[in-house]
Amino acid sequence: MAISRAAASSVAEALTAPNTAPGAAPVIGVTGAPGAGKSTLIGRLVARRVRDDRTMAVLAIDPSSPRSGGSLLGDRIRMEAISGDPRVYIRSLPSAGAHDGLTDNIAEVLGVLDAFGFGEVLIETVGVGQAEYGVRALAAAEVLVLMPGAGDYVQAMKAGIIETADIFVVNKAELPGAERLEAELLAVLERREVKAPVIRVSAVSDEGVAALSEAIDAFLQESRERETQAARQRFRLQSLVQRRLREVLDQVACEQWRLPLADLYCSVLKRL
């Protein structure tokens, strides 16, 4: 099945897709606020990690407009460092109906990629707020990218993504405020007893990218068992049920919304 087909398939089609056991390729998730520098950083990181015997795939997700359903997929243009490298495959995807920072059918798309034998797969999530961390279920390593000038962001995310990330990047480290951000972040991590590397990077100048790449290697070394088949399967099931639920809710007729909540609940469950 081609990637477009996998990405656009309906719930029914996705159910008949072959079982996609996680392939040999580790998935590296890169997440963080809009504009934090995820795409630029991925370009640098992939340029450093790609080898003739380790081709790389990048799935770059940008948000779909809730109004028109369309999207402007602008991540590829920021991945200057790898544009044109024949060992790197970049695929831009709209978030479509997904609200977890990923896209509908991301697990099926990963399954299709597995067949091509890439050495590693990177996923760039949409710029996330507090509650979107779907990539955790799919990634062997999750990198959270922060930038200075968004100090409130650390504050806002304390309970969310900070607990799911494996490696923290303070990007745009050459800008004022980077040290303060790092200090704030370290303080939050310490208070929550999260032990994870914090790495200062400047994706525009490539500074710190080597250190990040090493941190990823070290993390993958000690945690290869995390990306289990069960985790991916659970993720697929959850996203298919959520999509089916949206379909069913869309079919609830206007007048039915006046029914008691318990009745609505039963009738929706029955139709799932």
Binding site: A2, I3, S4, S64, S65, R67, S68, G69, G70, S71, L72, L73, G74, R76, I77, S83, G84, P86, Y89, I90, R91, S92, P94
Partner: peptide, 27 residues
Amino acid sequence: RDAGADVIYTGLRKSPAYIAQAAVDED
């Protein structure tokens, strides 16, 4: 985009070979 399409913009000064490869990769 506002008319509903998924649009990939690749930026300035790209070679025909780069553009063709991107169009194929992005299907």
